[in-house]
Design a protein around this nucleic acid. Structure first.
Length: 364
DNA sequence: TACCCGTGGGC
DNA sequence: TGCCCAAGGGT
């Protein structure tokens, strides 16, 4: 055994010992079942465990297996996903469940490679399921692991380059191979990153593998990894369209752009062709009355700072809204109109932006 | 490959 | 209040 192997073995051992003593409870962590790990990991992507865990419990209670998820109505799934954002993940999760029921006869894959074929399941999630549930020695590299590994390796630069990412991946792969508990090892690296090897003010004094850390040796732990280059913020002005007819409010599924796939008010970018088409269509409806609601709201989606206003269109009681629906649907990129009564609107809204718009609308 | 996608919580 | 951030994957 080379000295490097020996050091790597010691690191794996020390990390696992630390994990055993310090791991936080997670509902899919102990006695991990593939479905629960899959759902739990996808729900946790790009969000915080604090937000994801309570929703996980509700989700798996309502949809305990892939068959239930595959058969789940769209609005139920939407409610189960509320507050988690990135709605494409929920749709992909269900797509994955349908892949399992339709193409795999309901049997969840038993290998990392098999999980990679599941829609919405990428290298990270596949490795988590395979290592936790099947003991497969595959590295799961998430943001925490990138931070921990880049510090251990003392990567003062290049962390975010292709080569840097490959180096980190290889680092994790070499070590998970040495472990008899690869699932625990993967989770241990992440747990260390989340609780000790934090982005800000890393607690190197509490780190079980500090002696192997190049960044700490260099006194550079708080400078590694370098912040990833950030996209510049963009200001966007949008108009939420509130169609009213016979005391009901029109909601529809947005088919493109922001919030694609979610149900809510049709939204158009201010000054866009869609906005002009909207006014044109509304203007041709006999008896329709249009007004701008007072005030505005703010909402941020990724790097977009959205300034929202509201256009209220009161449609005449006579006449079917069907024609308007079809025309507006094409012009605004929405479909499946539904008309909610006042009490039911909020519950039917699929995105935080819609709720802010409704807040403004209902404001005194 | 670079860019896209939401939200709630912390500070 | 406003900004930053967090257990990625699709395209």
């Amino acid at each position: 055994m080379t000295r490097r192997d020996k050091n790597a073995t010691a690191l794996v051992r020390d990390l696992l010992a630390w994990y055993s003593a310090h791991k936080r409870p997670l509902p899919w962590r102990d006695a991990p079942a593939p479905y629960r790990v899959w759902v739990g990991e996808v729900m946790s992507q790009q969000t915080t465990l604090k937000v994801a865990v309570p929703r996980f419990e509700i989700f798996v209670a309502r949809l305990p297996d892939a068959a239930a998820l595959a058969a789940c109505p769209e609005d139920v799934l939407r409610r189960l996903w509320a507050g988690l954002g990135y709605y494409a993940r929920a749709r992909n999760l269900q797509k994955g469940a349908r892949y399992v029921t339709d193409d795999l006869a309901g049997a969840l894959p038993g290998t990392c490679a098999g999980w990679l074929d599941v829609p919405g399941c990428g290298p990270y999630t596949a490795a988590m399921v395979a290592s936790m549930c099947f003991g497969e020695r595959v590295p799961a590299v998430d943001g925490n692991v990138v931070r921990v590994a880049s510090r251990l390796l003392g990567m003062a630069e290049g962390v975010w380059t292709k080569d840097g990412q490959a180096r980190i991946r290889e680092f994790a792969a070499e070590r998970v191979r040495l472990s008899d508990a690869p699932g625990d090892f993967n989770q241990a690296l992440m747990e260390l990153g989340a609780t000790v090897c934090r982005k800000a003010r890393p607690a190197c004094g509490s780190c079980p593998i500090a002696s192997a850390c190049r960044a700490r040796e260099d006194g550079a732990a708080d400078r590694i990894p370098q912040p990833r280059p950030r996209k510049a913020g963009v200001d966007t002005r949008v108009v939420c369209v509130v169609l009213l007819a016979r005391g009901r409010v029109a909601l529809a599924r947005r088919e493109r752009g922001f919030l694609s796939g979610t149900v809510g008010f049709p939204v158009v970018t201010e000054g866009s062709r869609e906005a002009r088409d909207l006014l044109d269509i509304l203007g041709r409806i006999p008896g329709a009355r249009i007004r701008a609601a007072q005030g505005a709201f703010r909402h941020t989606i990724t790097h977009h700072r959205i300034h929202g206003s509201i256009l209220v269109a009161l449609l005449p009681a006579r006449g079917s809204p069907r024609v308007v629906e079809a025309e507006l649907g094409r012009a605004l990129g929405v479909s499946d109109f539904s008309w909610s009564n006042r009490a039911g609107v909020r519950d039917a809204l699929g995105a935080a932006l819609d709720r802010k718009a409704l807040d403004l609308l209902e404001a005194p």
